[in-house]
Design a protein around this nucleic acid. Structure first.
Length: 464
DNA sequence: TCAGAATTAAACATGG
DNA sequence: CCCATGTTTAATTCTG
């Protein structure tokens, strides 16, 4: 990621109102992260681009915290205005920053300054995936990013251009006409091309995001007391785990990670460069050799992710093949016969939005019916589990409430469990990180050490 | 060092 | 005309 800071500040604001809103929100909730944890992480995390040492690791754990917890609120749509971490830290309603310590203040300050370690593609992906209907208008994507990464609230507005650029250019994202849309505003909806979801998840994982699988659409069967537990596979260890074990397992990953893993989890932000572009936008890409392209994205094949979702495990139509620009472009035509399940992602949406692929891409798109039907069902059920808000209100209103209540309860239970698990995991991770950081930054300033100490003490207290 | 991926900036078109 | 959205190109930066 290039420095956003370098963007010309005199550019006109694209959405003037939002910054204020989010800025103030961020100020009140402090990004909704564990304040003490982040206080250790944040203080010097203002620069992500260069020369980051020990602090950066903490910073990235910071993001890990946020996103882990976000995703552990499985089955609930991200509530932009309410951080998912509220629940964990404050027992439900208390903003994290209400425990006003010097840590939380510093953290709030720095959360606004530190740049997310995720590429725009991943940010967009996360936004879309956490939306109820798995598709969002650009504006909502902006909002999600602003809500979850307040850094952008204060950053120059070129990032929105980048977001749009990514949406247009990245094959992972597909434009969807919304015919009911006038009331919802202009512009199209954007969704994630299921075919490329594995890529995105892989990219997320590569970006110190062990819980990337949580961005996967939940399995077909609705959660119930009798439903079989979801099994997750920790990519680097090949362990198959029940969800209830994930806290311990992921904690193990954090605590016993190899240097490489540790770097992934705590180290310098790395953007995964695995996401396919829709076309070539630079001449030299056209005649670039395919030598390196075939060697990229090792994880997709080497570490198939159990994503509790059929398509995610299917990488046979491997987009990695055309993940480089030239190949991407050339494969477009051949991909016309390739199974396409985008529509399936929208199956539950198409009551609200009619899916009409854009002409530019429609030429190369057919949709796979078999997979679609399965996924449609799956998504329908998944969407049933999701909370309210967003675009699907009408259709839910049409449904009877009778079938909803038990699911809701179950969902709540699961959420509780997951939050708890995530909480303890993060505490462990926080301790680990704090200790590591203290060790490595032995030479660093006393002030910093003090903050780390506070952080560690906090976690130890919490554990006890 | 290099190729490719990602970011950033900018121009332009379109539609509300 | 303004603004949001979407597309495209180009330059730059970063990373494996």
């Amino acid at each position: 990621m290039g420095p956003v800071i370098g963007m010309s500040p005199d550019k006109k604001a694209e959405t003037p109102g939002v910054q204020e809103l989010v800025g103030s929100r961020a100020a009140t909730c402090g990004m909704g992260t564990l304040p003490e944890a982040e206080s250790a992480a944040s203080p010097k995390a203002t620069s992500v681009d260069k020369g980051l040492g020990d602090d950066e690791e903490l910073t990235n754990l910071n993001w890990l915290h946020e996103n882990l917890l976000q995703n552990f609120t499985l089955g609930t749509e991200a509530q932009p205005s309410v951080s998912p971490l509220y629940d964990i830290e404050g027992g439900g309603a208390v903003p994290a920053s209400s425990s006003s310590s010097s840590c939380s203040r510093a953290q709030e300050k720095d959360s606004l300054k530190s740049k997310p370690p995720y590429s725009f593609s991943l940010l967009i992906y996360m936004a879309i995936e956490q939306s109820r209907n798995k598709c969002l208008p650009v504006k909502e994507i902006y909002s999600w990013i602003l809500d979850h990464f307040p850094y952008f609230a204060n950053a120059p507005t070129g990032w929105k251009n980048s977001v749009r650029h990514n949406l247009s250019l990245n094959k992972c994202f597909r434009k969807v006409e919304r015919n009911l849309g006038k009331a919802n505003g202009k512009g199209s909806l954007w969704c994630v091309d299921p075919e490329y979801r594995p890529n995105l998840i892989q990219a997320l994982k590569k970006q110190h995001f062990p819980a990337a699988h949580a961005f996967c659409t939940p399995p077909a069967s609705p959660p119930s007391g009798s439903s079989p537990p979801r099994h997750l596979i920790l990519q680097d260890q090949g362990c198959s785990l029940k969800e209830s074990d994930i806290d311990a397992a992921t904690a193990m990953m954090l605590l016993n990670s190899s240097p490489e893993q540790h770097r992934m989890q705590c180290g310098k932000p790395q953007q995964s460069r695995v996401l396919p572009q829709k076309r070539s936008y630079s001449h030299h890409h056209h005649h670039s050799s395919s030598s390196s392209s075939s060697s990229r994205m090792p994880g997709v094949q080497d570490n198939p992710i159990d994503l509790s979702r059929p398509e995610t495990a299917v990488v046979s139509n491997d987009p990695k093949e055309d993940h480089n620009y030239s190949a991407t472009f050339q494969h477009c035509a051949s991909r016309s016969s390739v199974s396409r399940s985008s529509v399936s992602s929208l199956s539950s949406v198409d009551e609200a939005y009619e899916y009409t692929p854009q002409a530019r891409r429609a030429g190369s798109e057919g949709f796979h019916s078999d997979e679609d039907s399965d996924l449609a069902e799956e998504l329908e059920q998944a969407n049933d589990r999701l909370g309210d808000s967003g675009y699907g209100t009408q259709q839910r209103a049409a449904k009877g409430p009778a079938s909803k209540k038990p699911r809701k309860e179950v969902k709540q239970e699961i959420d509780e469990e997951l939050k708890e698990a995530a909480g303890s995991l993060l505490h462990l991770a926080g301790i680990r990180t704090c200790l590591d950081a203290s060790r490595r930054t032995a030479k660093s300033k006393k002030k910093k050490k003090k903050e780390e100490k506070e952080c560690c003490h906090f976690f130890v207290r919490r554990l006890c």
